[in-house]
Design a protein around this nucleic acid. Structure first.
Lengths: 227, 227
DNA sequence: CTTTAGCAAATACTATAGGATATACGGGAG
DNA sequence: CTCCCGTATATCCTATAGTATTTGCTAAAG
């Protein structure tokens, strides 16, 4: 099945791109890099003019972002970027994450392929190396951390759990970005514990390592609410 | 809070209704009652003509349904109702449900208000009474069962968990409908156990009762895949 | 002089209609 | 029987009309 859907690149015709996708990626990137601030209005008209497309693909992209909880819509008012999580929301998010992610790690410990494990290991190495470069590499750290967690969720074999965790992770990312939290060496040490457990294919240790990792992450974030 | 947002009807101004919502409810109802069969195409043009509105509100409604996983979209092809869950998907759904719903029941056992408990009790009574009327009352049973589970999730105090469970429940409903499974007296007995646990505010018993309920539900569904 | 109420213009969303293009289906030639 | 081609249908996107909200200005009252 390798070449069946890959005719020689020379003959490959360009299919009409989905404008909705392009718009989605553009807005998503702007949200994730705080070019659009939490709570600020997002005008359909302005976006249509800026991006040089009509309103329909804009609406489609914003609908998808709304389903992810990244933007909210108010009737006859319009879209705006989701406001920053409050304390209650953060608690709920981590409560859910603590239910899902240690479980995913436990399953991944037995189901993970060696290719997946190698990829995971490379990511942790890259994250450690990048950290030395200081704050400019945070976006790269965030990207790798996101991939790291997503790969574990994927290795759990449960698509629904993977999707749910991916969604939670985008909100964690936004929260971290908003509060200017740096990548910590703590996180890297916790990732290392996870790698060890996966290498040993030890379910209990993997679950426990993930639980510890998530709990510590929670503790690091909670401090932002204590004044 | 009763009258605060209900000024005298005479002065009440009519706000323009959201056509997208009306369309959403219409399509949702048709999906949930199998007027639209799983996998069948859903034409935007046809819907627009049938409902007497233009394409924009149709697309908005379908986008929301797509986010729920009830319809799928293929570029340049269009929308179609999601195909029926296969065995793998059912396994994944129940794996997730078993992570969330017993936990929700445990939390609800301590957090539930007496009003919520009374409402819950009324639902179980109604479900038992309705059952005697035979198959015509299935839709009513489904509605009450959905409310029953949603109320417990709500009482857990975690909105994210509640939303996730609500979404899972719609798919369970579709699966049950497709396989013509009747409301079982087993389910009513399992609900009764839950009620007992909530009345005693016993976390362990509530969690265990819910786990048993979900596991038995899983077993009832799994039988459809054994030929 | 400051503040508030009311009106008017601009802004932006909702919904409609129409044009360009890709897919699907059916008939005919090889 | 297979393959190619033309027609029909539906989607994707654009452009535009219709309305609700918002903003800013003016005027009047405290």
């Amino acid at each position: 099945m390798a070449t069946s859907q890959n005719p020689p690149a020379s003959t490959a015709i360009k299919r009409p791109p989905r404008l909705g996708d392009e718009v989605y990626n553009t807005i998503y990137a702007q949200l994730m890099s705080q070019k659009i601030l939490p709570g600020s209005r997002i005008s359909i008209d302005n976006l249509a003019r800026e991006l040089g497309v009509s309103q329909t693909p804009i609406r489609e992209a914003l609908s998808r972002l709304e389903a992810q909880g990244l933007v909210v819509k108010t009737h006859l008012i319009g879209f705006s970027a989701a406001s920053q999580m409050d304390r209650t929301r953060l608690d709920q998010l981590y409560e859910l994450r603590l239910l899902l992610e240690p479980f995913a790690a436990r399953k991944a410990a037995t189901l993970m392929s060696s290719e997946q494990f190698e990829a995971l290991k490379r990511m942790t190495d890259d994250m450690r190396n990048d950290r030395g470069q200081g704050r400019v590499s945070y976006s790269e750290f965030a990207r790798l951390d996101s991939q790291f967690h997503d790969l574990i969720a994927q290795a759990s074999g449960n698509d629904l759990v993977q999707e749910t965790l991916a969604n939670l992770h985008t909100h964690v990312h936004l929260f971290r970005l908003f509060h200017h939290q740096q990548a910590t060496s703590d996180a890297n040490a916790e990732h290392a514990k996870l790698i060890e457990a996966f290498e040993a294919r030890d379910q209990d240790r993997a679950e426990q390592a993930m639980r510890t990792h998530v709990e510590r992450s929670y503790a690091r974030f909670r401090s932002f609410f204590e004044d």
